[in-house]
Amino acid sequence: MLKITQRYLAVNFIAPFTMSLFFFVAFLLTFQLFRIIKIVISKGVEWTLVFELMGHIAISFIPMAVPLSCLFATIYTLNKLSEDSEIVAMRSFGLTKSKLFLPFLISALFIGACVYSLNNKVIPASKTQFKNTIVILTSRGVLTDIKEGQFFTEVAGVTLFADTVIDKGRKMYNVFIQQEGKGNLLEQVVTAKEGALIKMRNDEWSVPSVRLHLTNGTIVKRFKDSEKNLEKILFKEYDFPLASGGAVNNFVTKDGMRTNSELRKEIEAATKRAKEQKLSKRDTEVSMSKTKLELWSRINTPIQCIVFVLVGFALGIKHGRGKSKNTSGRALAVLLSYYTIFFLGVSLARKGIVPAYVVVFTPTILAAIVGGYFYKKLDWAS
């Protein structure tokens, strides 16, 4: 059983953690909010749907916001208790560092377990529902906003033009599509005599998709490579995917919509495909990098909560009234270093240079070393 002082520390941690979590989720939410409102206003839907979409996104931001909340809540709690000399009083009747740290550690373990549980099923289900709703909303625009003789640019990176449009875009003639390329592909131009918008539903995700079924046309691809700068393909039938909404739709990936067990199965299937295709080790890592990053990040988040609480504890305790240290500055330096190493590693992992688990766990291990150093250095005798 925790002593009264330890329960007191845990209770003092709850309020700043809750407020920090709300702040970070709201902060991250603002980056998507304007895009969602733009879609909702342009499609003329009810505002209740806006709050539903915001709720789905807010849930998906929890794994990112929780570790940050653990760090700043721990620092704030210990700063306040130190300034009020409550830490000194606790030390005076024999509480050791480990006993003071115990309630924060238990809180971090509980929070980490909750986040891991949410990451397994709740968040993937929420992301699936979010993408489902966005596609339904934007598909309305695809069906009604395509006008004959006018350029349609609602789909990110795609320009569509048709000489004749019948039945609100469900049938088109003399279709022209220009799509921005990625990587070595500069652009892709598709022309067809006829086109028809069709809705499809992915059985795995239950997410609708809109495709433009084209007949009797050509595909011209332009590459950066000077040896093969053009490629022309003739087709009788071709399905061109359409999904408006821009970056909002790209916010949710297929890997983010999978449960942990589904991610593991996908990795096993990708490994099997790589062996059958006799891909190199680096190409194999590239093909599975996003899926592995998603899986290892979910495993790392609970550990990250514990490590950030350790860092916050080591930096949060002051030496007494009037003897302060720049805990916020140090915490910010730790965070900047952590995410700089992480995002640099992500770029390397996607190129197949570094394994995904190394990328995910390296900054956490380094943060744990920093937290352990300051914890050991904490002068408990003075």
Results as ranks from 00 to 15, higher is better:
Gly181His: 13
Lys182His: 08
Lys182Asn: 11
Lys182Val: 02
Asn184Thr: 13
Leu185Val: 04
Leu186Lys: 06
Glu187Asp: 06
Gln188Trp: 01
Val189His: 02
Val189Thr: 11
Val190Arg: 03
Gly195Thr: 01
Gly195Pro: 01
Ile198Ala: 02
Lys199Gly: 13
Arg201Val: 12
Asn202Cys: 10
Asp203Ala: 05
Glu204Asn: 12
Trp205Glu: 12
Ser206Cys: 04
Ser206Ile: 07
Val207Gln: 00
Val210Ile: 02
Val210Cys: 03
Arg211Met: 14
Arg211Ile: 10
Leu212Ser: 01
Leu212Asp: 03
His213Phe: 13
His213Ser: 05
Thr215Asp: 07
Thr218Val: 08
Thr218Met: 02
Thr218Leu: 01
Thr218Ala: 05
Ile219His: 06
Ile219Asp: 06
Val220Arg: 06
Arg222Gly: 10
Phe223Ser: 08
Phe223Thr: 08
Phe223Leu: 09
Lys224Pro: 07
Lys224Tyr: 15
Asp225Phe: 04
Ser226Val: 14
Ser226Cys: 09
Ser226Lys: 14
Glu227Leu: 12
Lys228Met: 13
Asn229Val: 04
Leu230Ala: 15
Lys232Thr: 06
Ile233Ala: 12
Leu234Lys: 08
Phe235Trp: 02
Phe235Thr: 01
Phe235Pro: 00
Phe235Ser: 02
Glu237Met: 06
Glu237Gln: 15
Glu237Leu: 09
Asp239Trp: 11
Asp239Val: 06
Pro241Ser: 06
Pro241Asn: 07
Leu242Asn: 04
Ser244Lys: 04
Ser244Asp: 15
Gly245Phe: 02
Gly246Arg: 01
Gly246Thr: 02
Ala247His: 05
Asn249Glu: 09
Asn249Val: 13
Thr253Asn: 11
Asp255Trp: 07
Asp255Cys: 07
Asp255Ser: 14
Arg258Cys: 05
Ser261Gln: 09
Ser261Leu: 05
Glu262Arg: 11
Glu262Met: 08
Glu262His: 12
Arg264Cys: 11
